[in-house]
Design a protein around this nucleic acid. Structure first.
Lengths: 109, 109
DNA sequence: TGATTACTATCACATTGTGATTCTAATGGC
DNA sequence: GCCATTAGAATCACAATGTGATAGTAATCA
């Protein structure tokens, strides 16, 4: 199955669409998790997702702005979407009826 | 942060309440994920969650039924509930607006 | 030309997940 | 009492994932 961080990365990339690249994804993840996205996790996970075929990456055109190492652009593949959907479904499914998953208080002993 | 499997375990244990013990949790997880819960993951993760203070475990009373090594009973601690809530929130938060998270089709390129 | 900026990459290490196999303690039938 | 049967726990060497400090690279600005 997908790891949690892999899921966050896929989600961020999907959300960014055309504008998905390393640093932007990092920003997005830090937003979602309130600040924790190690840079090592980012690029190693990106590599792993790519070898698994869940994303496709390529080096972008030379940046038109100050400071400009070429961006590593990212696109989530169909397979990646499927994997993300499965992860999401599994978490949702597991969380049904549990106290922290809704505003309805569950059957906490 | 919590790993995915750790979350599944916490959730299953919470759901089982009074009846949470190793084998039952395994059953619950296999239900939620449609069949994948390695036994190794179960007990090592249980140990890790306990040392982190997210669950409390103790050996139960000698079983009244056929086949009976004492059950390892499990209870999610307040800290565990907090950790699970955070994980869930992070996944929810990250998933906002993404195509696979709702029936509404997102802005898929 | 060199300071500054935006970004990617690496690597040794820590943490998490795996599954085949073994161990334990209870019961039921004889 | 004896042992087959059963429910369940534990182990361990290994695989997969996540981390962060540090360094590299290519562009612009003054």
């Amino acid at each position: 199955m997908l790891g949690e961080f892999e899921y966050l990365l896929l989600t961020a990339a999907a959300q960014l669409g055309e504008d998905a690249y390393g640093a932007a994804i990092r920003q997005e993840i830090e937003d979602a998790t309130r600040g924790r996205c190690s840079i090592g996790a980012l690029y190693t996970t990106l590599d792993r997702l790519e070898t698994k075929g869940l994303v496709r990456t390529w080096m972008g055109d030379p940046t038109p702005q100050r400071g400009g190492r070429p961006k590593r652009m990212v696109r989530v593949t169909a397979k990646g979407v499927r994997a993300a959907r499965d992860f999401h479904a599994a978490v949702m499914r597991a969380s049904r009826g549990v106290s922290w998953a809704s505003n309805r208080v569950g059957t906490q002993p």
